[in-house]
Simulated scan of single mutants.
Amino acid sequence: MTDWHAPEDLVARYADGSLPDPDAWSLEKHLEACTPCAARVSRSVRATAAGAVLSDVRRTVLSDVRRAALATPAVPAVPHRPLPAPVPLPRIRVLWAAGPAVRGAWLPAALLVAVGAVVLAHGAGFAGARPLLLALAPVVPLAGVALSYGAHADPLHELVASTPSAGLRLVLTRTVVVLAVSLPLLTLTGLLLPSYGGPGAAAWLLPGLALTLASLALGGWLGLRTATAVTGGGWLCAVLAPALAPDDGAVSAALTRQASVWLGGAPAQGAWAAAAAVCAALLAARRTAYDRLERH
């Protein structure tokens, strides 16, 4: 028994079959330990059109069982036959179920960044399209992480947060889903854009990983939304603000210079790799903070 109970709209959506699979699985796990919610769900299901059919099936089955028990002599027990192995879910459906951000507004926003960069480069002839993409790319997974955990992102957050798989393990699982979508999308987009001598299309990967780990580590103190806003906002101010400052309108050249400073060359990439390692170690040291994060 828990202090949390499923709201009426959640029960109604479960009964009519419109509740998404991951939310339905979480609710069913809750029903195993909460008798009041189980009774409410049962009443709600019985009130649907399927409820009448299920009642008829139940009565028919019970009647057949009683007649068979009276008419059939005892037979030797049939050896147990194992159930067939469950069919694994397609990978794309697993990604969809495990990542609330992928099911929300974040995925269209990430696609908009990618399509917008291609349109600027090939439609408007903007020479700074790739540096601009490299400047925005590390922030895209940060937004996905911010929208992946917490009551604002998951209607069953209170229930999920009380399970053994909650905390840092769940945060990392959903972060991996966000990275699995954003990394190939933005890197392949960068390959479609002219470089004009700037950093390569994959130059943002280590900075993006370091900023994501920094947000997760800082989230143990501030919460994920605040942490991602601090790290993402700091990155944009450091990279984009100087590029937008020139009065001569040479934004493309300024963007290329800024991208080269922050992303270009082995020293910069080595620094980002070291920062990612430090943030990962700090996150491991603060892993228990997520056991208490956003539980009320």
Rank of each mutant, 00 (worst) to 15 (best):
L170K: 04
A146L: 02
P131G: 14
V177P: 05
G150A: 04
V177H: 07
S148Y: 01
G167I: 10
S162Y: 01
D154H: 08
V139I: 06
L142H: 14
L156I: 06
L142V: 03
P138S: 10
L159W: 13
H152I: 06
A137I: 12
A143T: 14
L133G: 10
H152K: 09
A166M: 01
L147V: 00
S148I: 03
V177L: 04
S165P: 00
L142S: 07
H157I: 05
S148D: 07
L136T: 13
P138V: 09
Y149C: 10
V140G: 04
V160L: 11
T175I: 01
T163F: 02
L172Q: 01
H152W: 07
V139M: 15
P141L: 06
A166I: 05
L134R: 10
L136A: 11
A127L: 08
V140H: 02
A137Q: 07
L170M: 15
S162F: 00
P141A: 13
V178I: 11
E158F: 09
L156P: 01
V139E: 10
A143I: 11
T173W: 08
V140Q: 04
P164A: 11
D154L: 10
D154T: 14
T175K: 00
V178D: 03
V177C: 13
V177R: 08
S162V: 00
L159H: 12
L170E: 12
P138A: 07
Y149N: 03
V145N: 13
A161C: 04
H152M: 09
V145Q: 13
V176R: 01
Y149A: 07
L136D: 12
V176Q: 02
A143F: 08
L132E: 04
V178E: 14
A151C: 01
E158M: 13
G144H: 07
P141W: 10
L147M: 09
T173L: 14
A135K: 07
G150Y: 04
A129C: 08
L156R: 12
L133Y: 14
H157T: 03
R174I: 03
G167M: 05
L168A: 02
A146I: 05
G150Q: 11
A151Q: 15
E158P: 02
R130S: 07
V176F: 06
G144S: 15
G128C: 00
V140P: 08
G144R: 04
A135Y: 06
V140C: 11
P131N: 13
A166G: 15
G167Y: 09
V176Y: 06
A129M: 03
V140L: 07
A129S: 12
V181A: 12
A127Y: 05
T173Y: 03
A129R: 08
V139H: 04
E158S: 15
L168F: 01
A161H: 03
G150P: 06
P155T: 10
R169F: 03
R169L: 00
V178H: 06
V171D: 04
R130L: 15
L142C: 14
L159C: 08
A151N: 05
L132C: 12
A127H: 11
A143M: 09
S165R: 15
A146D: 02
V160I: 14
P164C: 03
L142P: 01
G167W: 12
L134T: 10
L134D: 09
T175C: 02
A153S: 15
A146H: 01
A180W: 03
L133R: 09
A135S: 12
L170A: 09
G144Y: 14
A180M: 11
G150W: 03
L136Q: 04
D154F: 05
P155G: 06
V177N: 06
L142R: 02
L136C: 11
